[in-house]
Amino acid sequence: MRDSAMGGGALVLFSGGQDSTTCLAWALARFDRVETLGFDYGQRHRIELDCRDILRRGIAALKPEWAARLGDDHTLALDALGQVSETALTRDTAIAFADGGLPNTFVPGRNLLFLTFAAALAYRRSLTHLVGGMCETDYSGYPDCRDDTIKALQVALNLGMDRRFVLHTPLMWIDKAETWRLAQDLGGQALVDLIVEDSHTCYLGTRGDRHPWGHGCGQCPACDLRAKGFAKFTATDATAAS
């Protein structure tokens, strides 16, 4: 963890979920100016966008230096992505595995578009670093979450925009339990509590009951992954304390 800020500024892909909130804290611990970007693409769980402002205010309140570094928030409409996607995240359909072995929650091209639009905005805002929550450890096989994909896209963006962007994926090689641990390391129990109470991960867009790990339907793959990660994280804490 780093507490001395680096120059260049960062733009965080900030959905309002557990992973992107952890990435926002990671960026605030490192960069002198941090802006956030969310996308409205007709996602079924659009309620996540409503969590973003609460989370931004909550995370700024955790540390004075984070409040000073947190800059503007941006939201871009990508309706076309939802229109061309026949997936369980953009249609009211049951979550299942599609032909080829990928879950039908995979939105083709989503992260490629997100990072391309993020780079275009960063270009205008004079930001050097792009931060996203892509992860190969808990990624359901999504090809646009792979480290090779992100590295290739960084090369393409730098060539196509003639800028030296750096794409950061701090969660790439850690699982959900370690993501909870990273949040605790960055912002203490207060950040863990903020993520539990105010972030949204559920694919169905259901706030639902308040579980130990947060709100959600408790049944979809995103809720299941978050719940199992939280259970492993708290069990490790309990073992260490005994």
Rank of each mutant, 00 (worst) to 15 (best):
L55W: 05
V166G: 10
M172C: 08
A60R: 13
H168T: 07
L167N: 10
H129V: 09
V131I: 07
T169Q: 11
N111A: 08
D99H: 13
R164L: 10
R110Q: 01
L167C: 14
D72V: 12
R57W: 11
L130F: 12
L130V: 10
R52C: 03
V84P: 11
V84A: 12
P64Q: 08
Y139R: 07
L159H: 15
G133I: 09
N158E: 04
A80F: 14
T149C: 08
A80V: 12
G132C: 07
D144A: 05
L70E: 05
P170K: 02
D144Q: 06
T93S: 11
D147S: 08
F97H: 13
K176R: 09
R56G: 02
T116S: 14
R146S: 05
I54E: 15
Q83T: 13
L62N: 07
A80Q: 12
Q83D: 13
L159Q: 12
Q83P: 11
L171P: 02
D99T: 12
L102K: 03
Y123A: 09
G141P: 07
A94K: 03
L121D: 07
H74F: 15
A156K: 06
V166L: 12
Y142N: 02
M172G: 09
K176V: 01
D148K: 00
A122D: 04
G101H: 02
L89E: 03
R164W: 12
W173K: 14
D162F: 11
A122R: 08
F114Y: 01
V155G: 00
R146Q: 03
A119L: 05
A77R: 14
N158P: 04
I54T: 15
A94L: 04
L55P: 05
K63V: 08
N111D: 13
A119G: 09
R163A: 00
E65H: 13
D138V: 15
D148F: 01
V166T: 15
A98G: 15
H129L: 03
T87V: 04
W66K: 06
R124H: 15
A118W: 08
T149R: 01
Y142L: 01
F165Q: 07
D144E: 05
K176A: 08
R110H: 00
R164V: 01
G132N: 01
D72T: 13
S140P: 09
G82F: 06
A88S: 08
A67F: 05
L89C: 02
R146T: 03
S126W: 13
L112S: 12
R52D: 02
L112A: 15
I150N: 08
A177R: 03
V131H: 04
S85I: 00
G58P: 05
R91G: 06
A77D: 15
D72N: 14
N158I: 02
A67W: 09
T149Q: 05
I174Y: 02
R124C: 10
L81G: 04
A77P: 10
A156C: 08
S140G: 05
F106W: 07
A98I: 03
G132F: 00
H129M: 01
L76Q: 11
T137H: 11
I174V: 12
R124I: 02
R56H: 10
T75V: 14
A156R: 06
R57L: 12
Q154I: 00
C145I: 03
Q154W: 00
G58A: 02
R110K: 06
H74V: 08
L121T: 09
L159T: 11
M161D: 05
L153R: 06
S126A: 13
G101C: 04
L159W: 15
T128K: 14
G58W: 03
I174M: 10
